[in-house]
Structures are given as structure tokens and as C-alpha cells.
Amino acid sequence: MFNGTKIISQSVQDAVPLWLQNVIWYVLETMDIPVQSAVQSFRLTSQPKTDDPRSYHLTVLHCQQHPYYRKEHALTAPRPVTAHILVIDNPPHCFMLLC
């Protein structure tokens, strides 16, 4: 799943840096679970780092409903990002949308 032509909405392009879009695609393509849902949810939240005010702790919460899956990824980002993204697999395309 999630290997089709990738289509990213303009709102995602405006709100989420390209490197982070690539991280999301990578996470999807390397998921190691027996069954993937066609709809994947990513919640991005940021908090300033106390040791470096120029960077942020970025939490990426990745979920699917059936079968249940939840994984949290911790990253460092140069600017804050807060968003809810849905990725939908509809072969031969994969859509990344901002909620």
C-alpha cells in the first residue's frame, strides 16, 4: 500500500515543510504491520526546546483505526508545525490532505 502516485494538497504544501512530508511518506512505506488501513492519520504538534530556542520538539502521532495501530515519532524541527494530516490510499494514487 501507499506506493502509488503521490498527490499532495496545496494546503499541506503550504503548512508542512517538504522534509516532513517525506518523513510521513517514509513512515507509511516502512510500516511493519500485517494489515494497513487505506486511511492513515498523522497529528503533528510542536513545543519549543528548552536547551535551544531556535528549534522545536516535534511529535508525530501516527494512527489507523482498523486494525488499531498507534505509534509516536519524536523529531526536532527548525520551526513549529501543528497539523492534522490524512493520507488516503486509492490505487493508483495516494493523497495527502490537511484536515
Rank of each mutant, 00 (worst) to 15 (best):
S41C: 11
P92M: 13
P78G: 07
H62C: 10
G4T: 04
R70V: 00
F42T: 01
D32Q: 14
L98D: 14
I85E: 06
V60F: 02
Q65L: 09
E29D: 09
N22L: 08
S41W: 05
Y68L: 13
P34G: 04
Q47G: 10
M31T: 12
P67E: 09
Q65D: 11
R54P: 01
G4N: 11
T76K: 10
P80N: 10
W25R: 00
L61T: 07
L18F: 09
M1F: 07
A83G: 05
C99Q: 14
F95H: 15
V27D: 10
T50P: 00
L58C: 04
P92A: 11
V16P: 01
T5E: 15
K49Q: 05
F2D: 06
G4A: 06
T59C: 00
L86W: 12
V12T: 06
M96P: 06
M31K: 14
W19T: 08
Q40Y: 06
R70Y: 01
Y69M: 05
Y68D: 12
D51N: 14
I33Q: 07
L98V: 11
S55F: 00
C63Y: 03
I88G: 10
E72Y: 00
P67M: 06
Q65Y: 03
T5Q: 15
K49D: 03
A38W: 03
P53K: 08
A38T: 10
I33R: 06
C63L: 09
P34W: 08
L75N: 04
D52N: 15
A38M: 07
H93M: 12
Q13H: 00
R70E: 09
S37D: 15
P34N: 05
R79Q: 15
V39H: 00
V12Q: 02
E72N: 04
C99N: 15
Q21T: 05
S41T: 09
I8H: 04
H84D: 14
Q10V: 08
Q21A: 01
V39Q: 06
T82F: 09
Q13I: 03
M96H: 10
L20T: 07
V12C: 06
F42I: 01
H84V: 12
K71I: 00
S11N: 13
R79N: 07
L28P: 05
I8F: 03
F2P: 11
A15T: 09
C99R: 12
W25V: 12
T59P: 00
S37W: 04
T45G: 02
Q36N: 03
W25Q: 06
E29S: 11
Y56N: 11
T59D: 00
H62E: 08
I85C: 12
H73K: 00
D51S: 12
L61N: 02
I33Y: 06
L28T: 03
Q64M: 13
S11I: 01
P48D: 07
